[in-house]
């Protein structure tokens, strides 16, 4: 298995919420990608946005600015 590193992980309640996040991040040039939700997080939607820890601030700004429908934002080792 791949080496684990810290990630900023954003979870959602719906697939639509995840799609809105991906589109917003791509449009704003915020790095990351959609991955299956790891078992350490309880989340409604089975996909989450995983970004490098350095992108956390940019991610949080996007969520606030665009009223993205997120369930939670976590820092975890993946």
């Amino acid at each position: 298995m791949r080496e684990k590193t810290e990630k900023c992980v954003v979870t959602f309640r719906t697939t639509t919420g995840a799609m809105a996040m991906e589109r917003a991040c791509k449009s704003a040039g915020v790095p990351g990608r959609l991955i299956p939700v790891p078992r350490t997080i309880t989340a409604g939607c089975g996909m989450c946005w995983a970004a490098p820890p350095a992108a956390r601030e940019a991610v949080e700004e996007l969520v606030m600015e665009q009223h993205l429908d997120v369930d939670g934002i976590y820092a975890i080792i993946l």
């Binding site: 719906t14 919420g17 089975g46």
Partner: peptide
């Protein structure tokens, strides 16, 4: 989504 919920999730559009 929300597979362990016994009712339909209330978020739109789900």
């Amino acid at each position: 989504v929300q597979s362990y919920l016994e009712t339909q999730p209330m978020e739109y559009p789900t």
